[in-house]
Computed example of a mutant assay.
Amino acid sequence: MDLLTPYQLRQQIKTGQFQGQTSGLASGYVQCNMAIVPQSSAAEFLLFCQRNAKACPLVAVSEPGQFLLPELGLDLDLRTDLPSYRVFKQGELVDEVLDIRALWRDDLVSFLIGCSFSFEEALLAAGLEIRHISEGKNVPMYNTQLACVSAGRFSGNMVVSMRPMKPADAIRAIQICSRFPAVHGAPVHFGDPQAIGISDIRSPDYGEAVSIKPGEVPVFWACGVTPQAVIKQAKPDFCISHSPGHMLVTDLLNSSLASF
Rank of each mutant, 00 (worst) to 15 (best):
Y29F: 09
H184S: 04
G24P: 08
V87Q: 03
L248R: 00
Q194Y: 00
D107F: 14
V249E: 15
S84C: 13
P244I: 05
C223F: 15
L93T: 14
D107K: 13
E92I: 14
Y7W: 14
N157F: 12
N143W: 12
V59E: 09
G207N: 01
G24Y: 04
R163M: 10
G127L: 11
W221G: 05
Q175L: 14
P244F: 10
A26M: 04
F154R: 06
I201W: 09
A209S: 14
P140S: 07
I36S: 03
A258I: 09
V59T: 01
D192W: 11
L3I: 10
A35F: 07
H242T: 06
I113H: 09
E92N: 12
D251P: 02
L25G: 08
D95W: 14
T15K: 03
C32L: 11
I176P: 03
S211C: 15
V61M: 10
L103V: 13
K137V: 14
N33R: 09
A229N: 07
D200Q: 10
P57Q: 05
F154I: 14
G156Y: 13
A222N: 08
D75V: 02
P38G: 11
T15P: 04
A173T: 00
V59I: 15
E208G: 08
S178Y: 14
A55N: 04
V219L: 01
A55T: 01
H242G: 00
K213G: 07
L98G: 15
D169M: 02
C115W: 05
P64M: 01
K54I: 01
N143A: 11
D106M: 11
C56W: 08
R79V: 00
D205L: 13
L46H: 15
Q228T: 15
Y7P: 00
I113L: 15
E96S: 05
P57I: 01
N143R: 15
D99W: 12
A168R: 15
F45G: 00
S243F: 13
I100K: 03
L46A: 04
V37Y: 08
A102R: 02
H242Q: 01
F190P: 06
F111R: 00
L98D: 06
T80C: 03
M247C: 10
Q50R: 08
V37C: 02
Y142W: 11
Q31E: 00
P167E: 11
P193N: 03
I176Q: 05
D237W: 07
A125M: 15
D81N: 09
Q66E: 13
K235M: 15
I231N: 01
A229G: 07
C223G: 08
S62Q: 06
P244R: 01
S243N: 11
C32H: 11
P204D: 02
L248W: 09
H246W: 06
P244Y: 09
